[in-house]
Nucleic acid binder design. Structure first.
Lengths: 189, 189
DNA sequence: CGTGTCATGTAATCAGTTACATGATTCA
DNA sequence: TGAATCATGTAACTGATTACATGACACG
């Protein structure tokens, strides 16, 4: 069974939003969907070439003055077909890897304070991320979202907010449990 | 800069829990930490070999009657050192890829009903997962957790519960927003 | 005058999956 | 008799990262 190659379809989806260059893609990913997607140039450019080869996109060169030429990619009819069938296909459960949690469960090798510190640092990271969400969803919140596209973008970010808030609550639970444990152990002496 | 190779340290952490074989590792991962980690045999066996080569683990062959021999791996002093320095090193933000959300944001290419259906299916998946959590944390909940190791295992699962509950709430929000959108659009006619 | 932005690409390498290979035993 | 469990491993491949390479302009 072949692998999924989701990158290919995400690039296809982005040039379907509007025609753009590899450089644009990198920026859009970083600015709009960085919460759940990432791409490196070393993946973007070869993948765009593949889209061309397979006839899923075509490219026109845009000359600019004072700046390098841009290769702007357009989705083709065949490309839109491919995108749709990817969208319609069921998404199987992703088997993720969370390095933070992996380290967390082996934390009994370290003193309790080290574990507390780690969770506190993690908590700070979540706080920062939450602040970032409020920043970027500022223009979005309260907006009408009368069209599906902008609604979907907003809701994708919204998931990030809910996840981050849940992680914050988890941190609080954990820190409380650690305090309890420390209390019990000192009272046993 | 070298890549992380987190698998290596997770295997190290597992044989530090207790000496075990590649087969055991696969089972433990599947039963205890499948929520945030996964390993394939094609990765486990070569990685164990690497641990041997680097002196981070050693192996003894356990003969069994009626069953194939087991290669049981033990962490060495050097291995424990490596594990500790990995645990102490700060974990950088993982840049994840969520195929579900990626498809979600391109959903304006499909009719609203298709989007609703997708989220409903996703929601069902979360419900099932939540049921699974209650099953596996059954023995854990209410337990004393007087030692750090069992507490950490419980708390790692607990994060899964909170995440899944948050995703369920997100689904409800999304479905509500979709209903609103459908209502607005039909009232405009 | 150095840093940042614009812009595209390749080569080496890595981490990990999938598929294949083997083979005995137990259980329905 | 066929499926499931126990048990280990390799080879081919893929998806993606990192590092390298190039070069012009703008801004402070």
């Amino acid at each position: 069974m072949p692998r999924k190659n989701a990158s290919k379809y995400v690039l296809l989806g982005l040039i379907d939003w509007e025609p753009m260059s590899g450089y644009d893609i990198k920026k859009i990913v970083e600015e709009n969907i960085r919460d759940f997607w990432h791409e490196s140039y070393g993946n973007i450019y070869p993948t765009l070439q593949k889209l061309l080869d397979e006839g899923l996109a075509d490219r026109r060169v845009e000359k600019q003055d004072g700046r390098p030429d841009r290769n702007v990619y357009n989705i083709t009819a065949k490309g839109r077909e491919a995108l749709l069938s990817w969208l319609e296909a069921p998404t199987e459960e992703r088997r993720s890897r969370d390095v933070f949690l992996a380290k967390f469960i082996f934390g009994h090798n370290l003193p309790l304070e080290a574990n507390i510190e780690r969770v506190e640092r993690y908590r700070e990271g979540r706080e920062k991320r939450l602040a970032w969400y409020w920043e970027v969803t500022g223009d979005f919140r309260g907006e009408a979202h009368d069209n599906l596209k902008s609604l979907l973008e907003f809701l994708a970010l919204r998931q990030g907010v809910l996840m981050t808030e849940a992680r914050l609550r988890w941190c609080d639970e954990v820190l409380e449990a650690f305090q309890d444990l420390a209390g019990n152990q000192s009272s046993e002496e």
